[in-house]
């Protein structure tokens, strides 16, 4: 049987659409990155201008910090929530649905609501914390250099841990019962089940979900942009927002394109390393 061409026929429609709407933008971005506003070729000038800006390295480290910090907590909380939601208790169905809410709500809604809650004067969070005596006086959560990034990470974790939770929950539910039975025969307790059955069995799901989170994280604009726009003093400036600012606020599409090309290359390397690291271990993404 000619499996070769049959497979291609199945794949082709999606590929054509993607090629049309993705390949062209990529090529165009590449072109913009080596030309000036008038379209004349300028070599690597745009790249050196971007690399020379003080904000660029700062944004790069902020991106790693934001994406890395978010993912660790998203995965930990998401998995913990999944294990909890896999228990039997009354109202489990409702709790499962409620857990999904943060993920379902539009990013812009989440951002405006949280920004409102974290407001220094009118925000409910300062009110609650000063009232409970946790903090002596209101904190400028979103304006204090040392709290703003953790707060944004927390909001981002809140937004996306439910996604990890459902994916892991689906994985947990597909664990065959005989594995638990066997463990039970050996007298395993709950925590032993978690570490010897559940986590190993959902490892592939977690690995896959983490890759998604990396990709989304590297491309997330809405939450930070809506809350701080990268401020104060670039403390929360991440590279995607720097690109956005360069292009749409500074009208410098050529430098924005140059930064995009570099960012894309770095992102690609990170993803390739991640996939390679996975491929070399057993239990790879199925």
């Amino acid at each position: 049987m000619d499996r070769n061409s049959t497979g291609l026929v199945f794949v082709l429609p999606a590929l054509i659409v993607l090629a049309m709407l993705v390949a062209y933008p990529v090529a165009y971005t590449g072109l913009l990155s080596v030309t000036d506003r008038q379209g004349a070729f300028v070599g690597l000038d745009n790249f050196s201008a971007v690399l020379g800006a003080r904000a660029t390295p700062q944004a790069f480290w902020n991106t790693l910090w934001f994406v890395g910090g978010s993912i660790v907590f998203q995965v930990v909380f998401g998995t913990a929530a999944a294990i909890l939601l896999n228990q039997n208790f009354i109202g489990r169905g409702i709790v499962r649905s409620i857990t999904l809410l943060p993920w379902v709500v539009p990013g812009i809604v989440a951002a405006t609501t949280w920004a409102w809650m974290f407001h220094t004067e009118f925000g409910i969070i300062n009110y609650m914390m000063t009232g409970a005596g946790v903090i002596p006086e209101p904190i400028g959560w979103l304006t204090n250099g040392s709290t703003v990034m953790p707060v944004l990470i927390a909001i981002n974790v809140w937004k996306l841990f439910p996604f990890v939770a459902i994916m892991v929950l689906a994985g947990l539910q597909s664990i065959p019962n005989d594995l638990y039975e066997a463990a039970r025969v050996d007298g395993a307790n709950f925590w032993q089940e978690v570490f010897h059955i559940m986590l190993p069995q959902v490892r592939s799901v977690i690995v896959a979900v983490t890759l998604l989170l990396v990709i989304w994280g590297l491309n997330s604009i809405t939450i930070i942009y809506a809350i701080t726009r990268g401020g104060p003093a670039n403390r929360t400036l991440i590279t995607p927002i720097q690109i956005f600012r360069l292009a749409f606020e500074s009208t410098n599409f050529n430098q924005a394109a140059a930064l995009s090309v570099m960012f894309f290359a770095v992102a690609l390397v990170i993803v390739i390393i991640y996939i390679k690291a996975l491929a070399s271990t057993p239990g790879e993404v199925k």
Partner: peptide, 11 residues
């Protein structure tokens, strides 16, 4: 999926 959103809007 990895393409920076800001970069592909105009094209």
């Amino acid at each position: 999926q990895l393409l920076p959103t800001a970069a592909i809007i105009v094209p």
